[in-house]
Design a protein around this nucleic acid. Structure first.
Lengths: 198, 198, 198, 198
DNA sequence: TACTAAGCGAGACGGTACGTCGCGTCTTCTT
DNA sequence: AAGAAGACGCGACGTACCGTCTCGCTTAGTA
């Protein structure tokens, strides 16, 4: 047994079940309604928990929602496949799968906070960064292998590839994009470019 | 005196100054804080108006914010220029210019609502549609003129072109994109495509 | 119309019915339970009133209870009768009548406060002073008329006469004193004195 | 080792120091503030004790306060002296001495409870009964010795004699009675009676 | 010139949620 | 088994907004 393990604060330890019930309640309520409708009292009631038990763990609604969001962090991003095209499609698909209905709703609730609170911004970055980093590596590998242009603006490419899916998820950008084959359509369009072949 | 002019309810007419003061107060408060911090009482106080005067005109916070947003609708989209590239860059720049600091903040407040309320969704569409329609026409013209590929997926192209800027505005997607030349970078990247020239 | 009458604060005036309902609820709850059991929420609920409506008028439970007590102030003390004995008995009876069941309960709730808060002490004095003053005058008149001893310690006499009844009301001093004829018994005992006639 | 000594529950015995610290804390807090301000948590904190240690001994605040009060029970009432007058004065003085500042505060906290809870009523009786019984015996002895009237209403006399002092202690009845010689004033007034000598 | 009718700022109304604190119980480890 | 510590579900605290409702006053068109 390590020294760290023996360092335990006195008194009754905090209930793990309460933690889980609270986070679960937050996710359920966020998926049902607005961020404004996410009442601390509703969370407590749905979790079968006293309000104090929530405030003992989180400073307020902001921090609570942030942690709920963090709990959605999916499995590690995804290893790469064979061709650049397949890898990109797979990554975008992974984004879709990972961010199911509920997750999309929860994340869209967070957007206004990201613009304001640096903490939420950092949180958001930490959630999407693995996905983006994986995509960067695919792109860099493509450049090295000669599949992609040498002068590729990688950061713009990442944003360009992810844009349509995120816009659609968050803003229902256009009905025409509400389509399972969106990843392929985006990757094909972007890879080939808009310009006519010379 | 025309019939329309005589169709006029009796009693004191509603104050136009109140309308303006209320909308202005909403925008100011939204730019300062969260949507949650936008209380009707704060709006009334800042506008120097009674609460009843607000509720006489709008049914609640939702409708009020929607109208405030509508008031930000910029000038008609923008006529087209010469080449496809220049037109697209101009359109994206227009988007930047039109959506100043305040507008970006206000719009990001709206994102969570768009996912839920069809009314807000329609509102959002009506705000961005002119810009998108202009872009579609530029793209279609490019296809006709042979500048762009014939099999272009127009809707995806629009999303792809707008994505980076919107992500950056709303989510501060990546520091590297916080750049005045973002429109050119995006247009150049997307037009040429990522793939290496054959 | 006087200038004072035209001085009216703007906005909707406070509801008199709310005032009455709140005070009534306080008295009812105090008569039922302890001062500790007198919850502001219970008062609001029983009065059919929002909590804010109470706090708009009173700073807290203390002030509220004080005002409720004040509302019990009975009719002016009582004019005097013929003999000193009859007058004293009548005054003590008046005390009994005026302070019905409910009043006794409410006042006993106040005792601990009187010891501490000068405000409550003043309030208590203002409630019982008329009764005591009436009694003093009866005694002084008795001295002048020769019915009472010339060297009478008036303040002690007043306390002596009122003591038994108050102790019984507040502390259920002794079962034997729970008797309708207590005023007579006290007055007769005190007037004649305990000492055997010489 | 005696049989009595062996009758002993197993495990760690209860700490006597805890008992004392708790009672002491209750008295201190009661003397400082209201009964409402006497929170179990404050008692535990001031006594340096866990809340469970309190609840292991007392069922709640009521019982705890009752026991704290019991702990104030002074020495056995007082043996009688020579004349009736001297004995009564001594008894009243004993009451003053016994009930110091702190005791008066604590007892006044109890008044509202006495009216309601039979348990507190019994408690109160048990605290003051010895004093009253001693006074009754003095009075009875006076009757037998011929010092006092044969038809004396003993219970009323006891209440009459104790009344002023108690009213003054609990309710600050009148400034004029805040006087060290109050016992003499009361006894002299009551013994002689108010009526003028015939 | 008066009358009618609606809008106006102000603010009280019955509610609901806030975040805190104390209740009496429980669960942990230590003595 | 009792101790200190402190988390637990609960419910009251006093505050802030909600959306509605009076108030007395102003501002128009109509009589």
């Amino acid at each position: 047994m390590t020294a760290a393990a023996s360092t335990r604060s006195p008194g009754r330890p905090r209930s793990v079940r309460a933690d889980e019930a609270i986070i679960e309640a937050v996710l359920a309520l966020l998926a049902e309604g607005t961020l404004e409708a996410l009442t601390m009292e509703a969370v407590a009631a749905r979790a079968g928990v006293g309000k104090a038990t929530i405030y003992r763990r989180w400073s307020g609604k902001e921090a609570l929602v942030a942690d709920a969001l963090r709990s959605l962090k999916g499995p590690p991003p995804v290893p790469a496949g064979r061709s650049v095209r397949e890898d990109l499609v797979a990554l975008l698909r992974h984004g879709i799968r990972k961010r199911d209905q509920r997750t999309a709703r929860v994340m869209s609730c967070l957007v206004p906070e990201v613009r304001r609170s640096p903490e939420h911004q950092r949180l958001y970055q930490s959630l999407v960064e693995p996905q983006r980093e994986a995509m960067r590596q695919v792109l860099r590998r493509g450049v090295r292998s000669g599949e992609l242009r040498a002068d590729l603006d990688i950061e713009v490419a990442v944003a360009v590839l992810n844009g349509p899916q995120l816009l659609q998820k968050m803003l229902r950008w256009h009905p025409d994009l509400d389509d399972d084959s969106l990843p392929e359509r985006v990757v094909d369009t972007v890879l080939a470019g808009l310009a006519a072949a010379t």
